[in-house]
Design a protein around this nucleic acid. Structure first.
Lengths: 130, 130
DNA sequence: TATAGTGTAATAGTTAAATAGAACACTAGG
DNA sequence: CCTAGTGTTCTATTTAACTATTACACTATA
């Protein structure tokens, strides 16, 4: 997997797993791939995977069962909250950045609409089961 | 200045200066604060400032004159191109992330509009002359 | 010509992220 | 009981970013 070298890998792994959990690729209660398998799939070290998982366990978005595996929480409210948080942080960031470039509220929305209309040839993938 | 510890400081300094250049706080041709002064203002090391500036010099967005100072380029076309690049990368990122969370094009625009309508009590600052 | 203010470069030390490798702890199933 | 498959922890090493400090190069001006 390709990572943005401006952001810690463990952090990008969290984002990757969040997306899998919030798009149905990993249903509530589902078992995650084994940490060693994830390390192979993502071409990173086991400890780096573990660091990402440790934070997610602390947050309660995944549940760890020693000897059995890691599982997506069944607490759907928590998952909904997670999605809300991720969406909001993205919106806040793009708004802050574009506003800092002197774009008005109207221009920000308009530029996003234009971007969506004119973008082309994008890939959509994201697979946790290859 | 407060930095996001998930992103290299020198990179955030570039963003900071770009914003100043693209919002009129630093006009085309204007002299930047001295590197040692910037280091004090941003509470970072001179070398970190220098690293950010070095990349900007390579890009041609600022021009260095040894013994005199660093200056914003007078090439307005380049500045316009810089702004376009920054705006586009922001839009691409928010679109990619929200799309990865299964939001449709329509939902992405709607969520941004909702965010802008309901956000409250934000600060807008950004000062290169305090 | 001396001095102060600029950018530039080099060296050395610190820290956090990531890696490699090993070991330990628990679970399930033969 | 043993073994294979899990998660967990630890130590050591490497690398990149950042810092601290010093020195050097150039410009303007008194």
């Amino acid at each position: 997997m390709k990572f943005d070298d401006k952001i810690p890998i463990y952090y990008q792994i969290k984002t990757y797993l969040y997306h899998a959990m919030l798009t149905g690729k990993l249903q509530p209660g589902a078992q995650l791939p084994a940490v060693r398998q994830l390390a192979v799939d993502l071409t990173v070290n086991v400890n780096t995977v573990q660091r990402a998982l440790a934070e997610m366990i602390t947050e309660g978005t995944i549940v760890s069962q020693r000897g059995k595996g890691n599982f997506v929480t069944e607490d759907q409210a928590r998952l909904a909250q997670l999605k809300e948080t991720l969406v909001m942080s993205q919106l806040a960031q793009v708004y802050r950045q574009l506003h800092a470039l002197n774009l008005s509220d109207t221009e920000i929305v308009a530029s996003l609409q234009r971007y969506i209309e004119h973008r082309e040839g994008q890939v959509d993938d994201k697979s946790i089961n290859d």
